[in-house]
């Protein structure tokens, strides 16, 4: 799903979050400096509406397989 904008998959995924609203701040974590630099590179990737659409279609709401936490940890999610 990356490539066309010259960004890596991680950068496109972060750019997608950034594109949703100026009031949304993604907070990626990493253990590696090279990934940190890659993440920061997402700030240079600007996606247009036409570019966002096909990316969003990859994971529409509810299509991802599996809950986002094991059942024991879901109790820490407040609805």
């Amino acid at each position: 799903m990356a490539g066309e904008k010259g960004g890596s998959p991680a950068q496109v995924a972060l750019a997608w979050v950034l594109a949703q609203s100026a009031d949304i701040v993604p907070i990626p974590g990493t253990k590696h400096v090279r990934y940190l630099e890659e993440d920061l590179g997402a700030l240079q990737v600007r996606l247009t509406a036409d570019e966002l659409r096909p990316i969003e279609e990859v994971f529409p709401q509810g299509v991802t397989a599996g809950q986002r936490y094991p059942a024991t940890a879901m109790r820490f999610v407040n609805g």
């Binding site: 995924a13 979050v17 993440d39 990316i55």
Partner: peptide, 27 residues
Amino acid sequence: LWTRDPEREILATCCELKVGFVAYSPL
């Protein structure tokens, strides 16, 4: 991209209440 749940309601609630949204696990 693979956790779109906030789009259902909470993003709009944050916008209305002027609460900044920090997206964890964005990858």
